[in-house]
Amino acid sequence: MWRFIGIRLLQAIPVIIAVVTVTFFLVRVAPGGPFDGEKAVMPEVKAALEAQYRLDQPMLQQYAAYMGDLARGDLGPSFKYPGRSVNELIAAGLPVTAELGLYALLVAVIIGGLAGVIASLKPNTAQDYIPMSAAMIGICMPSFLLGPILLLVFGIYLEWLPVSGWGDIPGDKILPAITLGSTYAAYIARLSRAGMLEVLNQDYIRTARAKGLPEWQIVVKHGLRGGMIPVVAFLGPAFAGVLAGSFVVETIFQIPGLGRFYVQAAFNRDYTMILGTTVFLSTLIVLFNLLSDILAAWMNPRLRAQFGKR
């Protein structure tokens, strides 16, 4: 198992380096410098600014310097907010986004997993159709549509829940978490249904029945483990999706998280901020992918054994 983790970690490193490199050069070759937008900047001020941000050096040198900073965990200063570093901005936004993402994933796993398992127990009956139709709606109703609609219905018409903010008024975390989690709940519902159906049709489930075990024990003891492996493997991609989805949800509900910073940075052409956030989020996603891969492999004794030998 440790070897498996080691191999995967080693594989993740080039991916992260590739991400950083591609992002860095993409941002550098972008048409229009970061200070072109400011009309009234005097040449000497601009030169001073460029020197401060190392823009006067050759590109490879900039790259080397940036990688050096990165290795020390320094993402550099922000272009748009002079005096503030990207690290500070990320540190400010991260807790909010992390909390939102966590709730969204919880919503997705608990509601989605439950719906999928319930549906798989009686395929092609109402018990299957109802949760699966709900899942279909979840898939076809993207967060940027569901968010405003929930906001309109529960926030504005019914006035049950607050329409914006994060942690200011009780209950203001409910709508964003549901909005962000719903799509993934839907995917997980479909995945876990398919996974459970596959497992419940296996011969060893028949063996368990022949032993005389009650149905719930068969499902829980013999079914869940195999049936949930695809869901666990999906957690990585789901995490990436939730992070990207937070761009939208944080914009809709005006939540001061990383996602909103990112979108603002994109519009402001705050290059160091974009670069820093991309690097940060990408690393996070790669690591999370790794984690869900390892978890899924660990759940399969055959894979676990394969990598157990040193």
């Binding site: 060893y204 063996t207 368990a208 029945r209 022949a210 483990r225 399969n300």
Partner: peptide, 20 residues
């Protein structure tokens, strides 16, 4: 089932739970 009458199946490859 499994107490008074027990069963053995055809394919021992698929009839045992691979996760247990």
């Amino acid at each position: 089932r499994g107490r008074d009458i027990a069963m053995v199946f055809q394919d021992p490859m698929t009839c045992l739970n691979p996760y247990m």
